[in-house]
Design a protein around this nucleic acid. Structure first.
Lengths: 236, 236
DNA sequence: AGATATTTGTACGTATGTATT
DNA sequence: CAATACATACGTACAAATATC
């Protein structure tokens, strides 16, 4: 049984998306929504708060609740998105993943410190190359704490590791820290990517954490300059 | 007078930051916090919800509220941050802004479409170069809808335009869409930046919106490759 | 395994405060 | 000044998930 506030939330989202509630217009007041949905004021407020969190509306004390422009709303594909998820969304590209290696290594002092584990702890290292439309444009180096992501195989790494973690292992991913910068291309990059003469690569370093707060992954995703694009939406 | 829930929120943030409530531990239960702060359960819950929104804790029905690792919390400098804000935070760099030009132009059909205004509408264009430690590393091209950001002068552009908008104009910025990509350096880039032989620049295109949803700015921020870094935190 | 207690989630109601119209 | 609309705060009751005995 869906909570009542979520029902109200979904109804309002529909009205915003189908144009019944166009951008820049005011939502019905809390009192009106109470009567329409036969809910208490707290429940209506919870639904509106959710709308604001998701970026559909903006509340203004004394004035009302305003629908934000569709541009912003259509932009909701941020968050943690893996390579295959991202490209499935973007449409018809010929995408291929080659697993170069899938081995276990021992954590160096530095890595142990990063992951908050003891030095020598087993880590699983996966190296993959992503080919889009015949060009090798992304080189991924994943490092997992083996005990937190057990049973990784080359076969699994060929698909979506995140799907394996969430569906097979049943663990929930909470958040990821992300750093984006440019670095000079290394010899490894030259070997594994079709650089087409570019001298630098874009490096995305991703640290991913479980719900319980355990740091279980650090990934370096090395992109060819001209095939890289990142979008997001930032709220004050 | 600060709302009670914010007082509770700040108290708990302090305890998390000074280590009284270390990572991975459980917060006192809602009942305990009610007694400690002599507040109702709803008020305590609102404080905890705020903690979760800011990424300090994670709530779990039936289990409790858990403090997330400090790493994540120290990472809270995301959102919309202007150039001077960002560098004031990062520490002692010698930062200088040169305003190349500050003129008004008429919106082309394409620009008018972007901003949802009529073609020919007046736009204010500002071109600036940012020098850090003696090197010209960022070239900013801002476009503002003049009627939405009136009174811009070269002098204001030499400081923080965002501060002018929020403090002098008294407008509130709501959100920004951001795109990050690499582009080949243009002749303009070569002229205004110390490229040091790099062939590409990182381009951040920023579209900024007021609370009321009006799109008032598009900025291109062109960074020298090796001086660029972007961090954020993504939550599922 | 099962009953019970604990902890967070949802929902209702009421009163009062603050910002805007 | 009054009416409207959102914000805060209190209280109560029951549901759902988890922990404990």
């Amino acid at each position: 049984m869906m909570p009542k506030y979520l029902h109200i939330y979904h109804q309002l989202v529909s009205r915003i998306q189908d144009g019944t509630l166009p951008a820049e217009t005011k939502l019905p007041s809390e009192t009106e929504l109470m009567h329409e949905f036969e809910a208490s004021r707290g429940t209506v407020r919870k639904a509106i708060d959710a709308l604001q969190d998701k970026g559909f509306v903006r509340k203004h004390q004394g004035k009302g609740v305003f629908v934000l422009s569709q541009d912003a709303i259509a932009f909701q594909f941020n968050g943690i998105v893996s390579f295959s998820e991202a490209h499935r969304q973007m449409g018809q590209h010929d995408v291929k993943t080659d697993v170069l290696s899938c081995t276990t290594i021992e954590a160096t002092a530095e890595l142990a410190n990063q992951f908050h584990v003891a030095p020598g702890t087993s880590l699983t290292e996966v190296k993959r190359v992503r080919t889009i439309d015949g060009e090798r444009v992304i080189y991924d180096i994943n490092l997992f704490v083996t005990s937190l992501v057990p049973g990784l195989t080359t076969e699994i790494a060929g698909g979506s590791i995140y799907a394996y973690i969430e569906q097979t292992l049943g663990r929930q991913i909470s958040y990821a820290k992300r750093k984006i910068e440019a670095q000079p291309a290394t010899i490894d990059d030259q070997q594994h990517l079709d650089l087409e003469g570019t001298t630098h690569v874009i490096v995305i370093t991703n640290d991913t954490y479980y719900y319980e707060g355990q740091h279980f992954e650090r990934t370096q995703s090395r992109h060819r300059l001209d095939k890289f694009q990142f979008t997001d939406i930032a709220r004050r």
